[in-house]
């Protein structure tokens, strides 16, 4: 029962979705529509588990006087203030929730995103330093596309922008397509294994 029922639930919910795809206006169709909402609701409840996880990890640090206790306390206060204001006062514009997001969180997100400029430079340096045929191909393609996308590229050679465009629309696009087809087959196969109960590692079983 403990092992069978979850596998049966996965089979029924997966099979229902497949059946619903081919039907129109049927009972199965209606149930599958509802199942998508149910999926969101189940995910919504897991939110409380997330809160429990955060509280357990960081309160433990505060209670045991861990060297990072002040940081953990800070995290807990921010979580309670932001989450609490969202629950009590709502999330509309002008609320504390919105102000904290606009004034603190959103700029931090932009900053973190912009850090990528440094990381992409260091990753490029390391990748291009590796001496192999593969990395040489990668380097040439990257430099051509990079130069083709900046105004200076045109001054170096007037055809660079069109070269860059060609690389993006021919070999790059072909590879994206090949990867997507292969990955789609892999994803479909994995889905089938889950529905059939062959793949059960997500339940902790091989």
């Amino acid at each position: 029962m403990k092992s069978r029922l979850p596998v049966l639930v996965a089979f029924i919910s997966g099979a229902l979705m497949i059946l619903a795809f081919f039907g129109r206006g049927t009972v199965v169709d209606a149930v599958s529509d509802r199942a998508l909402t149910w999926q969101t609701i189940v995910g919504g409840f897991s939110l409380l588990l997330g809160a429990v996880s955060i509280a357990r990890v960081h309160w433990k640090k505060v209670a045991t006087k861990h060297e990072d206790r002040l940081y953990s306390l800070c995290l807990l206060i921010c979580f309670i203030v932001m989450g609490g204001s969202g629950v009590i006062n709502g999330i509309g514009s002008g609320t504390l929730f919105d102000t904290l997001f606009q004034r603190i969180q959103a700029p931090m997100m932009s900053t973190m995103f912009s850090v990528l400029a440094f990381f992409i430079a260091s990753a490029a340096y390391r990748a291009f330093r590796a001496r192999s045929v593969s990395s040489a191909i990668l380097l040439v393609a990257a430099v051509l596309v990079m130069l083709g996308r900046i105004p200076m590229g045109q001054y170096i050679y007037h055809g660079l922008p069109s070269w860059a465009d060609w690389i993006m629309t021919v070999p790059s696009m072909a590879v994206q397509r090949g990867i997507l087809i292969g990955a789609a087959l892999g994803a479909a196969s994995m889905s089938l294994r889950i529905i059939l109960g062959i793949e059960r590692t997500y339940l902790g079983r091989g």
Partner: peptide, 29 residues
């Protein structure tokens, strides 16, 4: 950085909590 990291994580976890509470738990349940 450590302070910013913890403030950032706390705020975004709280943001997600408030957002899902309002849009899922309240509106859909």
């Amino acid at each position: 950085f450590k302070l910013a990291e913890h403030v950032f994580a706390g705020l975004s976890a709280g943001y997600y909590f408030g957002l899902i509470w309002q849009s899922v738990i309240r509106q859909q349940v």
